[in-house]
Simulated assay, not measured.
Amino acid sequence: MTETKPTAKARRGRIFPEIQWSEEKKQARKTEREAFRQRCEVIFKRVQPELIETHYNWYISVEPDSGDYFIDKDEEVATQKAQEKHRNAKLYLFRINETGVSGTI
């Protein structure tokens, strides 16, 4: 007599359920992110003129609550420097150039 082994069914789809946010919650999240970016941008605009001359195209990671910023040639290193001092803080990354944009679109 032949024994049959039960076979596991393959999981299909996502492991985590999709997040279903209302339009109001999406808009609130977008507004919150924009307000955070603006708080960081104030610090960036303050130091940009002096840094653009000596650190052009470097990266700057900003922590807006303390006003601290960290710069490095490598974006990951700039972020790591900021995270070492501010463990759980939200950070924003800029590139030290005319626009402050750190990536390509």
Rank of each mutant, 00 (worst) to 15 (best):
A35Q: 13
A82I: 10
E32N: 05
E50I: 07
E84C: 08
E76M: 07
K5W: 11
G67C: 04
K5A: 12
E75C: 02
S61L: 11
I43T: 15
K85E: 11
K30H: 05
E41L: 07
T54S: 06
Q20R: 14
F70W: 10
W58C: 01
K85A: 03
R39A: 08
R87F: 12
K90L: 13
R12W: 10
R39K: 12
Q38L: 15
V101T: 10
A82T: 11
A28S: 09
W21T: 13
G13H: 03
P6F: 12
R29E: 09
E75N: 01
F44A: 08
E32A: 10
V62L: 07
Y69H: 15
Y59I: 08
T7E: 15
K45D: 03
V77L: 00
V62N: 06
R95P: 01
Y56N: 15
W58E: 09
D68F: 09
K26E: 03
H86A: 11
L51C: 05
K30G: 06
I15C: 00
H55N: 14
S66I: 03
E18V: 12
D65K: 04
A8P: 02
Q83K: 11
R37S: 05
T31G: 01
T79G: 09
D72F: 00
E84G: 10
R33Y: 15
T2W: 06
R33G: 15
W21V: 12
A8W: 10
D65L: 11
C40F: 02
V62T: 04
T7C: 13
T7H: 14
N88T: 09
V101H: 07
R37N: 08
A82Y: 12
Q38C: 04
